[in-house]
Amino acid sequence: MEDEGNPATLVMGVIGSDSHAIGNRILAYALNEAGYNVINLGSFVSQEEFINAAIESSVDVILVSSLCGHAEIDCQGFKNKLIEAGLQDTLLYIGGTLAVGETKWEDIEQRFKKIGFTRIAPPYTRPGEVIKWLHEDLDKRKNTKVA
């Protein structure tokens, strides 16, 4: 976990049978530039791969990307597995084209909150926005730890 002065460690990747890799690389670049320790698993990443990487590297945040529209199926049971793996405190973000068709964003957001994601980024979210969330969430965490 994040020690005093050490940058937070993030693991990111595109979940499931999804080969969209460009957004993933742009985001990885931006997060690296922002000073985070980034483990990018690339595309085609299973839940287990996210979890394994998070265990070995004591990761603070898992950032899941999905563009194929199947994110809800790909993420089923993800939070529960994290709890099983002792990673219940790891922050879980998701972003991308999270559903196909005409679904309202509020509905989509609700569904992913239910799965256990704390930040859900709609299409066209800028990397800067994600970095802002990370600052807020990690700061909050540090303060609660001290308290």
Binding site: N6, T9, N37, I55, E56, S57, S58
Partner: peptide
């Protein structure tokens, strides 16, 4: 073994 460098201790 166990843990990446800087990872799980």
């Amino acid at each position: 073994s166990g843990g990446t460098d800087g990872g799980n201790k």
